[in-house]
Design a binder for these strands. Structure first.
Length: 670
DNA sequence: GAGTTGCTTCTTTTT
DNA sequence: GAAGCAACTC
């Protein structure tokens, strides 16, 4: 065993890592080493002789899963580490369902629908039932249905209402497409375990030790899942969480799952981790001062023995441009070329909304400071990526009309929307998939011979492709590349781009995706293209190309930053209406926004700057802003307020002059 | 049937 | 200030 030693843990951490058996609740404040404890516990279990394959560690986000995997990899021998199941809830459910979907009337090759697919389907159905007086908003409907599913409700209790009938039609439609949306993954997995003893017993006996990270973020459905997976009597279930960092209430997360853990798993060992190893005492006291204003907490007292440290700065700016410029300059002044010589990775800019990243990206780019944007509109949202994913999806699941429609339209094949409308209707009437109808066009009275020819050409090719792909030992990436070339996809892609640069870029994206597929199939020959697609759908980002992008300043939302830490943090846009977000005020979830700020503050190790603007460009026009009311709660000892303009007009210190020269020299040399 | 233009509408956070 | 959508032209 390497990389971790039990005696490096403090007494509470040690107790948590070596708790023998039965339920355990670890209340771990920010920065108290909870990932470390989880890792240590896993290593300890393995060292005690627990079969690594019987250990299940569930996290909430992919990022957390990835980090755990790395840390466990360092603490446990690699052949054993490989056997441990370490995944997000969604990925775990996919795993269950890929094996046992037939119990639920789905085929194992079901497609996974992301939000976009979901919306598309919802809109289609909403248009079909078109209620003249009650034009229900598909987005709102999608939201409500999603919430219902996350409460464990798989179907409407009435189909009399517009919403109820939409829900029921939507669910039926998904089923005929042999598809599940993100919420279904959890919901169907729950139903599988709840209603099918055979499956339940198989999974239950497989995992003897369950660990759940970020338990405050689990919703009702996820708790149910965990309960179903756990043994009947005193299960070895260990959960870690912090009620003050519960920031996913809008997704149905219930901090109550954490606060009332005892109700579901009686008589647990309870361990509190309160010593913070991350931040300075000043930063912690500011965080504590803020979070005190929330009611309904399981209260704790975070402390640190780092008594030194700079004060927390609260800085105002004239507008969002100044804010970004100022921060970019400050980062440069502390970066590798300055006297402080901090690596770019030490810095992070945290914001409430993804849209806020743009301003910072521009300013950093101008100064040639490397950066990476975490999350936001992903690689996956690109048109060409969606196209390729649709090709793969349609090939793997012949019932996925949705994907096939996208294939049919890109590149255009002489089968237009009118024909497809007809075919879709015929499919609905005969209970057949779109592909089946096209394969057997008797049901289709298409007048034009041209269209009939186009259909025939397509179905012949497509059938051949599908056979190719099913051939044992086939290389899916090579087949897919062949298909795309043969049907003229690349020419069409090029034609649709305004500039050559854009065309190259998009082609490169496709190429990269195909390469990733090749790599994946080599590494996981068993899972093949299906596994690759699952990974894409669930992770929504590419596995490759992390290396070079990793080096740089981090731009990240407050939500995505949870669990991460940076020596120097700028928390930007602390304005009323943004943080707390306007919507949270009308929805009565301001406490969650306060926790969000708390999460942001506790990301900082050494230096923290919170900024706000007097005006900000919002959806096009300039809006005036007032500082966040939370800033008043922060004010006090250890906090220093000022404005960027005033700092900029103040004379430079000797050190800054020196840095200025150093940077000029560096710029001249580069 | 395909492609283009100008109109609109919004924008939280993630799997 | 993007991204979707309806109506328009080729």
């Amino acid at each position: 065993m390497s990389g971790f030693r039990l005696f490096d843990l403090n007494p509470e951490q040690f107790r948590a890592a070596t708790h023998p058996e039965g339920p355990m609740l670890i209340l771990a404040g920010a920065g108290t080493g909870k990932t470390r404890v989880l890792t240590a516990r896993i290593a300890w279990l393995v060292a005690q002789g627990v079969d690594p394959a019987a250990i299940l560690a569930v996290t909430f986000t992919n990022k957390a899963a990835k980090e755990m995997r790395e840390r466990v990899g360092a603490a446990v021998k690699s052949d054993q580490a490989k056997l441990i199941t370490l995944s997000t809830f969604h990925a775990l459910c996919v795993r269950l369902l890929r094996k046992h979907a037939h119990f639920l009337g789905y085929k194992e090759n079901f497609s996974i629908f992301d939000e976009g697919d979901q919306m598309g389907l919802m809109k289609k159905i909403a248009a079909r039932i078109h209620d003249k007086e009650n034009p229900l908003d598909p987005n709102l409907a999608r939201n409500i249905i999603s919430k219902a599913k996350n409460l464990g409700i798989g179907e409407p209790d009435t189909t009399d209402t517009a919403l109820g009938s939409l829900f029921s039609k939507y669910q039926n439609e998904l089923r005929t497409l042999n598809a599940m949306d993100f919420d279904d993954l959890l919901l169907q997995a729950r139903t599988l375990l709840r209603d099918h003893q055979e499956a339940r017993e198989e999974w239950r006996s497989r995992y003897t030790h369950i660990l759940v990270d970020e338990f405050q973020d689990t919703n009702k459905l996820q708790l149910e899942l965990v309960s179903l997976l756990a043994a009947d009597h005193r299960p070895n279930i260990c959960v870690v969480g912090d009620d003050d960092q519960s920031i996913y209430g809008w997704r149905g997360a219930e901090a109550a799952n954490l606060l009332e853990f005892e109700r579901h798993f009686p008589d647990p060992e309870v361990i509190k981790l309160e010593q913070n190893y991350r931040s300075t005492d000043i930063i912690l006291s500011v965080a504590n001062r803020l979070i005190k204003n929330n009611s309904r907490r399981r209260g704790k007292n975070l402390w640190s023995d780092r008594k030194d440290g700079d004060p927390v700065r609260i800085l105002s700016a004239m507008d969002d441009k100044t804010e970004a410029e100022f921060i970019a300059d400050e980062i440069q002044a502390s970066g590798p070329q300055s006297s402080k010589a901090l690596p770019w990775t030490s810095f992070a800019i945290l914001y409430r909304m993804n849209a806020q990243s743009r301003q910072f990206e521009e300013m950093l780019r101008e100064r040639k400071i490397p950066y990476r944007v975490v999350g936001g509109k992903s690689f996956f949202d690109r048109r060409e990526v969606k196209d390729v994913v649709a090709y793969l999806g349609a090939l793997l699941n012949a019932d996925d009309d949705n994907a096939l429609l996208r294939v049919l339209a890109n590149p255009p094949r002489g089968i237009g929307s009118a024909t497809l409308q007809l075919a879709t209707e015929a499919g609905a009437k005969n209970g057949k998939s779109l592909l089946a109808i096209l394969n057997d066009p008797e049901h289709l009275d298409v007048s034009s011979a041209k269209t009939r020819g186009a259909i025939q050409r397509f179905t012949e090719d497509w059938g051949a492709y599908r056979i190719q792909l099913q051939t044992p030992g086939a290389d899916p990436a090579a087949i897919l590349r062949g298909i795309l070339e043969e049907c003229g996809y690349f020419e069409d892609l090029k034609k649709s781009c305004k500039t050559d640069e854009e065309a190259d870029n998009r082609q490169e994206n496709v190429r990269e995706l195909l390469n990733a597929l090749t790599g994946y199939c080599q590494r996981h020959p068993k899972d093949g293209a299906r596994g690759f697609l699952d990974g894409l759908m669930l992770e929504q980002e590419r596995e490759e190309e992390k290396a070079e992008e990793r080096e740089g300043v981090t731009l990240i939302t407050l939500h995505a930053a949870k669990g991460l830490e940076y020596p120097e943090v700028w928390l930007v846009g602390a304005e009323d209406g943004l943080l707390p977000h306007e919507r949270s005020k009308s929805e009565g979830t301001v406490e969650e926004e306060r926790r969000l700020l708390y999460v942001g503050i506790t990301r900082a190790r050494h230096r923290l700057t919170i900024t706000h603007c007097a005006t900000r460009r919002k959806f096009g026009s300039v809006m005036s802003c007032t500082p966040s009311p939370f800033l008043l709660e922060l004010a006090g000892e250890g906090v220093e307020s000022g404005s960027m303009e005033e700092i900029l007009s103040a004379p430079m210190s000797d050190e800054e002059v020196f840095d200025g020269f150093a940077q000029m020299r560096a710029a001249l040399n580069s």
